[in-house]
Structure formats: C-alpha cells, structure tokens
C-alpha cells in the first residue's frame, strides 16, 4: 500500500456535498429515541423506531447507489482505491473489537464468575452454597433450568456450510480476476445460497433451543453469552449475505473489471471475517 512514497493522485476524488449522512443521522436518532421509548412501554416508541429504520434503509440505498455510480464512472483512482482498502480493514478491526467485548464476557463468566459462585470462594460458601456449577451451566444460582447447546448437530453443519462458502467465494473471485464472468456469477450465487442456508439453520436451532430446551436470553450467563454472541454473529451473516447479493446483482449487470472490483473484495473480506468469528464461536461457545 501507499506507505512511504506511494501514489499521489493529482486529483483525489472528493465527493460533492451529500444529503445522505444527515438522513442517516436522523434515522439513527429516531431509532435510538424510538427504541428507548419502546423498551419503556411509551406509546409511539415502536413506530418511531420503525420509521427510523425505514429512513436508514432509504439512506443506505441512496448512499451506496452514489458510491456505485461514482465507481462505475471511473472516479475512484488508485489512491482512492488504497483509501478504501485501509478504510475497510480498519472497519473490520473495529468489528473484531466489538466481538472481543462479548468473548471477554464469555471467558470471564467461564473462568471467573461461574466458578466463584459455583464451587469455591466465600461467595460460594456464604451466599450460594446450593449452587454447583460446571461450564456449560444448565442452571444459574437463581434462574430456571435449561439445556445447554450441543456442538455436533446443526452447529457443526453450519460450520461446514460457512467454510464451504468461504471457498466458493474465493473461487468466484478467481473467476473475476481471470475474466471468467460465469465463474464469478455462479460462485457468488452459490455463496449467497450457502449464507441463506446458514441463516435458516440458525433460525431452526434458535427455535428448538427456545421452545424445547428452555434456553432463553434469561438463562443465566450461559444463555446471555450464547444468544448475544451467536445473535450478533447471525446479524453479521445477514449483512454479509445482503452485501453478496448486491455484488451478485452488480456482477449480473456487468460491473467490476479484473483490475477494479473493490466493492466485491470488501464484501469478500467481510465474509471471511464473519467466517473466522464463527470458527472461534464454534470452538468456545458450542464445543469446549
């Protein structure tokens, strides 16, 4: 990348004034306020939240539409391309740190708080002597019993699906680089299908857990970390899938050239990131 004596576009692309950011701010403001009201059972909260969300969708279409148009018009030179790469990399780093917070909570519960409550320390002796815990817990000091999740059922299948999807996506990328547009389209389509299957299976898994295993958000530290980690991951898969669908649409319209296709690459990076998070999840949430 352009570090020491790299590229200097004589005319770095600076976008024109745009209405999208402020639209996005209004959207998020409505969502924040709406959610706060809704969670406290104040009348219109839910509708404010939904309105905000609708505005957000509109903003995303508008903003990314502009970006795609600018990209197609060839306004993004090499230096802009480098900026986009740095930008996306740092964004993914921020996502890593977001997940790190929840993994931190998981490890803390497993290594510190549950043992302390469950089998050693004065805390156990004096306050919770009836609570005996090993991870994964199937009860909490004061929560209803539940069944922890098994690793080698749907989760294992989902692992296989995501790993495969990483491979098909790379295959699509090769196709793009080598100018084989059919590879690109087929590879992307398969990846999208795999992403959708993952989501479907996860929905089934959640349904099963909630109704038959009594595993709820309120099921102690286990339930909380389980749903929050897999839930945020699932949301990321959803976003990644939408990104890939967009890329598929663009591929079908003939966007991207073997040299210029950062939109595609960004989506791919994101997808691989989501993939890696899942692997860590699989190991520490489901398996060990």
């Amino acid at each position: 990348m352009n570090v020491e004596n790299g590229i200097h576009d004589p005319h770095y692309f600076v976008p024109a004034p745009s209405r999208w950011p402020i639209v996005g701010s209004i959207a998020l403001f409505c969502m924040g306020m709406g959610a706060a009201f809704w969670m406290n059972d104040v009348g219109a909260g839910k509708y404010v939240l939904l309105t905000g969300f609708a505005i957000l969708i509109w903003m995303i279409f508008g903003w990314f539409g502009d970006v795609i148009r600018e990209a197609q018009a060839g306004q993004y030179g090499t230096q802009v391309d480098h900026s986009l790469r740095w930008g996306m990399s740092w964004f993914i780093f921020s996502e890593v740190m977001f997940f790190a917070a929840f993994f931190g909570a998981l490890f803390y519960a497993r290594v510190i708080s549950v043992p302390e409550l469950g089998f050693f320390s004065h805390t156990h002796d004096l306050l919770w002597h009836n609570f005996n815990a090993v991870w994964p817990t199937s009860t909490g000091p004061k929560v209803d019993p539940y069944q922890p999740m098994e690793a080698f059922g749907l989760p294992a299948i989902n692992t296989a699906i995501l790993l495969t999807s990483g491979a098909t996506l790379t295959w699509a990328h090769w196709g793009l680089v080598e100018g084989k547009r059919d590879h690109l389209k087929i590879g992307l389509a398969i990846t999208v299908l795999l992403g959708l299957s993952f989501l479907t299976l996860q929905a089934i898994e959640y349904h099963h857990a909630w109704t038959e295993m009594s595993l709820h958000l309120a099921s102690g530290a286990y339930g909380a970390t389980f749903y929050m980690l897999t839930g945020f991951h699932g949301m990321h898969v959803l976003v990644g899938t939408i990104m890939l669908i967009t890329m598929l649409g663009r591929a079908l319209r003939g966007h991207f050239t073997p040299k210029h296709h950062f939109g595609f690459e960004a989506a791919a990076w994101y997808w691989h990131f989501v993939d890696v998070v899942w692997l860590i999840l699989f190991v520490f949430v489901y398996w060990l």
Partner: peptide, 15 residues
Amino acid sequence: GTHFFKAAGGGDPVL
C-alpha cells in the same frame, strides 16, 4: 433479562 452483570445468573457486576 440477560445476566451479564447479575450474580443470580452467573454473571458479575465487576465484569
């Protein structure tokens, strides 16, 4: 209803 920071569910305010 999560228990990240509540002992009653195996969490901890100190977390």
